[in-house]
Design a protein around this nucleic acid. Structure first.
Lengths: 151, 151
DNA sequence: TTAAACAGTACCATTCCAGTCCTGATTGAG
DNA sequence: CTCAATCAGGACTGGAATGGTACTGTTTAA
């Protein structure tokens, strides 16, 4: 568990396909065929990505979609946020005041810090990294942790 | 989005309550009252936690629950796994072979690496860290990233 | 023997998600 | 100017998952 939505997964697949030729414009149907994602689903995902500004659309005959930025400038955090809204592990991280326990909840602040760490990890990976030429590299990411120690 | 389940959130609240006096035994009703989580929900969560081995239960009159290990030895990754199953951002990370796109999917391996990074972040935070005495400390976590560079 | 307390299961209502379809607006080409 | 290609936006539906709740059984201490 702790899954991203399927549509978010499809979004990464579609965007990665576009990133492979990132100044090309693709029609939704073309992208669906290349990515092997169902055409109606592809169209739905691309609309969301366009609304979020990750891809640019051109309407009309000869229209299509292209990446709005360079692959290295689009992060997985961007994609998740575009498809699912703001990243937050608990409701209270995103919708302040939505949880009746806020006054006496001891873990709220800690979940907020964890959420920030997760988002940082997702922001460290870009579409360029997702291209299928995997060679590994380890990079250190700073993760907030609560502990009785100095900053 | 990218939420943990509410029950997982409740689990952290209950466990944190227990961690505050971690060699004490609590009845489910007592914990519910202290944590202000509904009693039936509390009972349900504690059963899951007991099955996962994070808490130990004693049945019968005078029974109850206590932490199975020291708070510093129980991580948020443990709690999430206990409540929601193995941590994985996409289905194919957890259930190999469940996705029809496995042969031609270029992002699968990268999602696996991202999932591992997320899990590492969750494993870096323990119940002891969740106790409401927040003083921040930054620690570096190694996060796998795919990139055209050396290992 | 009895009451306290956990164990296991089953159930339901609600919400959410994935997938599809339809209609409308825009644009290039003939 | 007309038509076809293409995106935009919204509505709808079936199914699954979540979250709560309740009921029955088992164990244990007094």
């Amino acid at each position: 568990m702790l899954r991203i939505a399927k549509l978010t997964d499809y979004a990464t697949v579609l965007l990665t396909t576009m990133a492979a030729e990132h100044d090309t414009q693709f029609s939704a149907a073309d992208l669906a065929a290349r990515s092997r994602v169902e055409a109606p689903t592809t169209a739905k995902v691309l609309k969301s990505l366009a609304n979020a500004g990750l891809v640019e659309s051109r309407r009309g005959a000869g229209g299509g979609y292209r990446l709005a930025r360079a692959p290295a400038a689009i992060t997985i955090a961007d994609v998740v946020a575009a498809m699912e809204g703001p990243i937050g592990m608990t409701e209270c991280v995103v919708d302040e005041g939505a949880c009746g326990h806020e006054g006496h909840c001891g873990v709220q602040a800690n979940w907020r810090r964890i959420s920030i760490a997760i988002e940082a990890a997702l922001r460290a990976v870009t579409l360029a990294d997702m291209l299928p030429k995997p060679a590994l590299r380890r990079i250190p990411i700073r993760v907030l942790r609560t502990d009785a120690a100095t900053s």
